[in-house]
Nucleic acid binder design. Sequence first.
DNA 1: CGTGTAAGGAATTCTGACACG
DNA 2: CGTGTAAGGAATTCTGACACG
Lengths: 102, 102
Amino acid sequence: MISYKDNKVISIGTVCELTGLSERKIRYYEERKLVYPARSKKGTRKYSFNDVELLMKIANKREEGVQTYEIRQELKKKHIQEKGIRNELRKGQLNAHFHMKK
Amino acid sequence: MISYKDNKVISIGTVCELTGLSERKIRYYEERKLVYPARSKKGTRKYSFNDVELLMKIANKREEGVQTYEIRQELKKKHIQEKGIRNELRKGQLNAHFHMKK
DNA sequence: CGTGTAAGGAATTCTGACACG
DNA sequence: CGTGTAAGGAATTCTGACACG
């Protein structure tokens, strides 16, 4: 169920190259609870491809002048929405939907 | 066309954790031309998830007592086979096959 | 608020080599 | 042949802080 996209194996230096962000920014966005890297045994941060994509989205928002607090709120909404979808799936409601459409 | 699996972003320490192999072994398999990590600007090795999977297969072969030279020969064969498949696809022969089966 | 930077330490990675077998 | 290890250096990453605004 967990794919490569969710596997936290990329160190911060590589994330910098991939996203164009500085280490400072990436750590700051963690401080502001926008990303949640894993930690290796020795304490170094490890990111997934999903994290990298999220950071690129955050970078775009920041360029538009959106503050980290607002970005966080948007992310929360998405989180809730996803939970909702998962609950519906669990209840079989979406499946029912699909059947009705057929 | 290139997916996350082919993206070389994992440093050797993480590959060790993922595969259970020592750095020495991983570097040696490179010396024997079994794996081809990329290099970061500063010269550190970077592996893809595909590389990690390949290394796990190599580890199994080695446990069976297969020598690196033989493993290399097997990998070469696979390489050639894949090239063959790609050529067939290019020529549309496989598509023809599929149509015939229908 | 968001980001840069210098600071000092700890951990990572690299290469070439010696060792054993 | 395949792998461990000690060696020395270079690059990475971490945290807490000061700075500017």
